[in-house]
């Protein structure tokens, strides 16, 4: 029976606790993911917000290993091989939960190698669009126009911007022809739970990319994380998409949901320096990305 909110377990595997910031999206992702994956799971997290937050408070109540920032993909490959050697691989879920830096930047090589080899594991990237745990520096997924502690406002836009085309991790993973790659949103939990369940049931590696609004570094009230995640989907800044075997693209959002990017950008302090011209640039890029995704979905 497919997982639904109604049938979801009450068991909190992220317990005994964590010390995440109030309103932390990454923690919500971890909590929901473990409800689907269950107790027979080994969880790996790279250095980042999640690791600093959960190990202080005792960590999750399932086996947990802290991986090196560049090595989550390799570490999970080793666990897969080790369990096989022990004859204990069946019935155990393997999950990596890493941030965007540990995924798209320093952890990229290891992730690429792991999915290319085809280990069976679920990799979830919580994308808070920067190195939020070390003070909010830019990363390879920081969006154009976003001010960070290493992209001061005057460096975040225009031709000298050090933030250009952010890496699109789902398309990069799809290009590895892995069985399942998708984006998900904390504002659409049913969709996210379905995708996690699908990822677990599939043979081979799967990748889910979740936008993780970070009130602390993006500059918005801590009770607005879900609303922001919702706006990100509705403005098509973070479209919901899934890709099977690198070929079949499906967009989870109908055409009627389209709000101007301004509605999303204006909610966050990191964008408050943007001019109308900058916002128009961002709108154009978002429209082009959507068009591209539609073309891919039409081919599939």
């Amino acid at each position: 029976m497919p997982i639904s909110i109604k049938t979801l377990t009450n068991e909190e595997l992220m317990a005994p606790g964590r010390t995440g910031c109030p309103g932390c999206a990454a923690m919500l992702v971890a909590r929901l993911a473990l409800k689907v994956l269950g107790r027979q799971t080994i969880m790996v997290s790279a250095t980042g917000c999640v690791i600093s937050n959960i190990t202080h408070a005792g960590g999750p109540s399932i086996p947990f290993i802290h991986s090196l920032l560049p090595g989550s993909g390799s570490l999970i490959s080793g666990i897969d091989a080790g369990l096989k050697a022990l004859g204990k691989r069946n019935g155990i879920n393997l999950m990596v939960l890493a941030g965007d830096g540990g995924t798209a930047d320093i952890g990229f090589q290891a992730l690429s190698g792991a999915v290319e080899r085809g280990h069976k594991f679920l990799y979830i990237c919580y994308d808070n669009e920067g190195y939020m745990n070390t003070g909010g520096q830019r990363s390879g997924t920081t969006p154009y126009g976003s001010s960070t502690s290493t992209t001061p406002t005057n460096m975040s836009v225009g031709k000298h911007s050090s933030v250009k085309n952010r890496k699109n991790m789902v398309l990069i993973m799809a290009a590895h022809h892995i069985p399942f790659a998708a984006t998900a949103s904390i504002a659409y939990p049913q969709d996210m739970l379905r995708k996690i369940e699908k990822a677990v049931q599939i043979e081979g590696p799967s990748y889910i990319h979740v936008l993780a609004p970070c009130n602390y570094r993006w500059g918005f009230p801590e009770d607005q994380s879900i609303n922001l995640a919702k706006l990100a989907v509705e403005t098509r800044i973070a479209p919901l998409v899934e890709v099977e075997h690198g070929r079949k693209y499906t967009l989870q959002m109908s055409n009627r949901l389209k709000r101007p990017v301004q509605e999303y950008l204006s909610t966050q302090k990191r964008y408050r320096h943007l001019s109308d011209e900058n916002i128009a640039e961002i709108q154009q890029a978002v429209d082009e990305n959507w068009e591209y995704l539609e073309q891919l979905a039409n081919i599939g």
């Binding site: 070390t134 003070g135 520096q137």
Partner: peptide, 12 residues
């Protein structure tokens, strides 16, 4: 450089 505490202010 690359962010890492406690040297990040050099980078910033």
């Amino acid at each position: 450089g690359y962010p890492i505490t406690p040297q990040t202010e050099v980078l910033e």
